[in-house]
Simulated scan of single mutants.
Amino acid sequence: MMAGMSMSWRDLHSTAVVADAHNDLLCAVVARPTTEWSDYFRREWLPQLRAGGVTLQVLPVFIDETFQPEGALRQTIRMIECARQITADNADDVTLCLTATDIDEALSVGRIALVLALESAPGVGEDIELFRILHTLGVRIVSIAHFGRTALADGSGEDATGSSLTSVGVEAVALLEELGVLFDVSHLGAAGVSHVLNIATRPLIATHSSARALRDHHRNLTDEHILGIAGTGGVVCVNFFAPFLAADGATLDHVVDHIEHIVALAGVRAVGLGPDFVKQVLAETQPAWCEHAPVRLLGTSLTYLEGLEGPAGLPLVTERLVARGWAEDDIRAVLGGNVLRLFRDHFGPA
């Protein structure tokens, strides 16, 4: 136990709110027959979430290129229904939360609070009024680009274009703010992030982005953008994907380095966790013959942090923060307190 700590790191982790702002597990669940969704989630993912101490889990709705463009909206709705079904059939353990009150009630009885997010929203295209329907179905966080170009904005893989949001993208930001949906800048191109910072009137979130000052990768945020997000009252959730943390040989210490950089820059209230655990998801959804497709997409090696390949490894982050002498309250803030505060304060219209 560290000097000044009132409990062990294990006890600290087990009593903290642990919020994972980005886990693509829904992609692995929905890939199975409908009749297997709930059992597969209960067998494969629930034990991992419990082992990691996860109490608040954002579930991205990510639409694989296989379904784009014609089937993107159908798959979006199917994935939302998947989340609703696994919640209904595992009601003792998880709750699909639409409001801050839902989250608090779930946490109070020991259930994992699940929150739906759209990642790049390819099923919407230019028909942004669909965001109203998707909000009604439970979506509470939205991003509008991935690596490539959409009708609303360019993703980070298109940074060379220097493109801001399209006119419809600007309308989308205003509509999402009206609905009380959090806007997610992760994956958005650098010029797009700057554009959003200029027009946003509500807090922003980066659900899974790290610091470009430590690793110069287009998927990471510049110091200027980190400060901008913090200035809105938002949170930057650090990505654990190894190639985004270091050029090679990334470790748990690199995760903490990125956390500490953001804290030093923008304050401890501006940081959360967005691990982006994809190892199991890709292993179970990518056919063997195209196993290297994600490498071509990212333009980098597909590698993972030892011990942090999935949510069960999250207590290691707490252990390392304690080892570096962090204060208990600050650790709790980073593990999930900051994300919970953001959700409590900004789910729903202003």
Rank of each mutant, 00 (worst) to 15 (best):
N239Y: 01
V54H: 07
D329H: 14
P294C: 03
H346M: 06
C97F: 12
S143G: 13
L188F: 12
H254R: 11
P311T: 08
V317T: 05
H261G: 04
L308R: 04
G249T: 09
D39R: 11
T201R: 06
S210K: 12
Q57H: 10
V281R: 11
N338C: 05
H261L: 15
L165T: 10
L49I: 07
G231I: 14
D276S: 08
R32K: 03
R212F: 14
L342W: 10
L302R: 11
R50W: 06
P311W: 06
P122D: 14
A174Q: 11
I133E: 02
G299D: 06
R140A: 08
S108K: 05
L130A: 06
M5F: 13
S209P: 00
L227H: 10
D92N: 09
G180P: 08
L227G: 04
R149T: 15
L298P: 01
L321E: 05
G180R: 13
D223R: 09
I77H: 08
S210L: 12
Q68P: 00
A288R: 10
L221V: 03
E177F: 05
C290E: 14
C97V: 05
A350V: 13
R42W: 07
P60K: 15
D257R: 06
G274M: 04
D276P: 00
I133M: 12
Y304Q: 00
P311C: 06
T55V: 04
G228P: 01
E70V: 07
E129M: 10
T232K: 07
S301E: 15
P243W: 07
Q280N: 04
C97P: 01
N90Q: 07
D127K: 10
Q57C: 02
D92V: 06
L114P: 00
D92T: 03
S156W: 11
T207E: 05
L107C: 14
E126N: 02
D89I: 00
A151F: 07
L252R: 08
E319D: 09
F347P: 01
S210Y: 02
R132F: 00
L12V: 03
A145N: 02
R84I: 06
A350S: 08
V29C: 12
